[in-house]
Design a protein around this nucleic acid. Structure first.
Lengths: 197, 197
DNA sequence: CATTATAGCGATCCGAAGGTCGCTTTGTCA
DNA sequence: TGACAAAGCGACCTTCGGATCGCTATAATG
């Protein structure tokens, strides 16, 4: 129950930091919205700064757990349709999971103020996805589902447009459905251009 | 000289807001770094809020002036090499011009807090570039320099990867040179894939 | 059941930040 | 040159936000 409070503070901090930034959020707001008085925070964290650091630790750990090791790489699709299905599944998760959305917004907002946020942003927004799809496309080229080419370059060309549209969903959530359609259209375009058929 | 002060305040505000955000920047810092006492600001603006609004007005106007009307569309290249040269020129400008860099960072940081920043961010980061290159690629397809395809989709596939790397330059300026190389490599890859040869 | 640590509360402190006001300086113009 | 407006200065006000401390209630433990 007490342990729970600490977690709830972190969750609420992620929520508020991702909307208004670290500087734009105050302790009172966090604690009152959880039904506490602001000073109750100091039973769980030494300072506002420590909330930030703990939160970032969690986000880094979470990313590492989830995407850190090769065993978390997705299976190599057996067809282009399967690639599309896998992509749509991943995108749907990433734009609808509230925690993931808030994490992305947080990193977007704080990337120029905090070095760890900066590093994590580059992984989240660029390198992580590219590396993952480098593996996927490398496998698909071996299976002759895609034209042979530099898999890292092809992965980059595939993931960055999708990433741009995910950012658009974050910025303008009311356009999410339309944007998901655009993602699917882009995937089909990509498959037409790069597919080996 | 007085008029100048107002401009200098706006310039400094852009600089600081783009590094630390609106909430993370205080009036004293702006004014003292310009050699004034903080309250001198109130001879030029009613409030901190008004600095923000004026600054955003300027950024919106500047964007409109520069990219707003069709006459500002770039000429359609006569060859793939020319497309590459034009792209490199544009990227170099956008990555090295301090004001442009600061504007991008500002929009990145404040896009979730301010609706006008949000709208301008979508233009800056996505639609503006895509529209511009839709025109370019449409012309190039007419000249049979590129395979015929949906020019808007091809423009999207061209500009968003470049945009992702421009964001990387903003985030990690020490990697600028290496990142510019990656942009060029991507452009060449793109030309190989989409070029009509 | 008594003890003790934990967690929440509220009063309070302190410094920072936005903003006001009146005085002084400067620069413009008749 | 005298008068006035614009612009800068600095003292001051107020609020807000982070942080400390001591009291109390709860809940876990021997």
């Amino acid at each position: 129950m007490a342990k729970d409070t600490k977690e709830r503070i972190l969750t609420k901090a992620l929520e508020l930091f991702s909307q208004k930034g670290y500087d734009g959020t105050n302790i009172k707001e966090i604690m009152v919205s959880l039904g506490f008085v602001k000073t109750a925070m100091y039973r769980h964290f030494e300072s506002k700064e420590e909330i930030w650091n703990t939160l970032l630790d969690r986000l880094i750990d979470y990313y590492e757990e989830r995407f850190g090791s090769p065993e978390h790489l997705p299976p190599v699709p057996e067809s282009l349709e399967e690639l599309l299905a896998m992509t749509i599944r991943m995108v749907n998760f990433t734009v609808h999971d509230e925690t993931v959305v808030m994490t992305r917004k947080l990193l977007t907002i704080e990337q120029f103020r905090d070095d760890r946020a900066r590093a994590l942003a580059t992984k989240h927004f660029l390198n992580g996805l590219t590396e993952m799809f480098t593996h996927v496309f490398s496998g698909m080229m071996d299976k002759e589902l895609l034209c042979r080419d530099d898999p890292a370059m092809v992965a980059f060309a595939y993931t960055t447009p999708i990433s741009a549209l995910i950012h658009l969903c974050d910025r303008e959530p009311e356009k999410t459905n339309e944007t998901l359609d655009r993602i699917e259209a882009f995937c089909r375009h990509f498959m037409k251009v790069y597919g080996a058929s």
